[in-house]
Nucleic acid binder design. Structure first.
Lengths: 179, 179
DNA sequence: CGCGACATGTAAGCAGTTACATGATTAT
DNA sequence: ATAATCATGTAACTGCTTACATGTCGCG
């Protein structure tokens, strides 16, 4: 489906940046729903260059360090917008190793389950706390056409997802404790 | 991480079955959190056989059709239980193409967004309806050690996840309509 | 007799991770 | 100086999907 292609085009459509910068974007809030390592980004940039969807210019940083500042082309913009507005069927639900393990958890004694669940709960509470802190940047919802509206959206989605994961864990913990 | 390995061992730990049966399990409720196609299952079974974690006996179905009924070995059970009780860090949040697209949705006019969101909403409502129907099988929570407790757990998790996805979509739709 | 489900495999290719590899810049 | 970060790339491998390939069974 070439999703990474469109993730990169989308970022370059916002503003020109280097491959390294793209990697950093994926470690911010966007990374809650899409990401890639530099080892995947650089080859993809080369491919997009070959396809004429992006171009770059060399920038000198310091004395000699050459970095490639990539920009989206008109052709790239067309391709990106085409992808963005296409209606697609929903994807199969994503894989989740912990829930797979809990599917088989009747093989564990209750004390072990409580330990695993507690460990999981703590980590999700941490992630939620971190997301809520990021959301503090916004004291109101950004306008629909602003650059950081997307950022607000994914933050909100991630917070809802963590909240309900925690609820599921707590339900299971309560049920274990009642036995 | 060899997760498929443990998904298969877990199923065979419940009861002996063929590769085909394993594929069918992945299309039931467990498939909400883990699945694999037959093209991945058969090679993995061969590998588990080589590792001595499972064995099979030939069963004749009808006149001539030979099918392989796989069972878990003692060694396989040990390996599986080891995996099951291990404490693991939570995984990075799963990728989601639609949310990636919505991250960039400030590039779309509001009418197009509402169409995409509505389309997505309908499909998630369908999935939720289907999940709720499956849950009707249970008029109460199965006991913690019963065979179908895991099934109930993943169903419950999937329902919560769909519910909150729908809530997120509806929030966005409302915000669009207010403009 | 024909169709859908049952049953088992392999091959090619795409997506993604980990590791290998190198070097410059900036802040302490 | 030295460590953290900036910056760019390749190689090997794992996981997963799509397509290729074959044949049987049970039902109507």
């Amino acid at each position: 489906m070439r999703t990474l292609k469109y993730a990169i085009l989308g970022l370059l459509n916002k503003e020109s940046m280097t491959g390294y910068d793209i990697g950093k974007e994926f470690s911010k809030d966007l990374g809650e729903f899409w990401n890639a390592k530099h080892s995947q980004i650089y080859p993809e940039l080369k491919k997009l260059l070959d396809e004429g969807l992006i171009v770059y210019e060399i920038q000198i940083s310091g004395e000699v360090l050459e970095k490639k500042l990539y920009s989206i082309t008109e052709k790239g913009k067309q391709d990106f917008l085409q992808w963005l507005k296409k209606e697609e069927p929903i994807e199969p639900t994503p894989k989740d190793v912990f829930r797979l393990r809990m599917y088989f958890s009747n093989n564990l004694d209750v004390a072990t389950r409580l330990q695993l669940l507690g460990h999981q709960l703590l980590q999700h509470q941490d992630r939620l706390k971190h997301l809520r802190k990021n959301k503090e940047r916004y004291n109101s919802i950004p306008p629909l056409d602003s650059d950081n509206f997307g950022d607000y959206l994914v933050l909100d989605g991630a917070i809802l997802r963590e909240t309900v994961t925690i609820q599921w864990l707590e339900n299971y913990i309560d049920y274990c404790k009642k036995q």
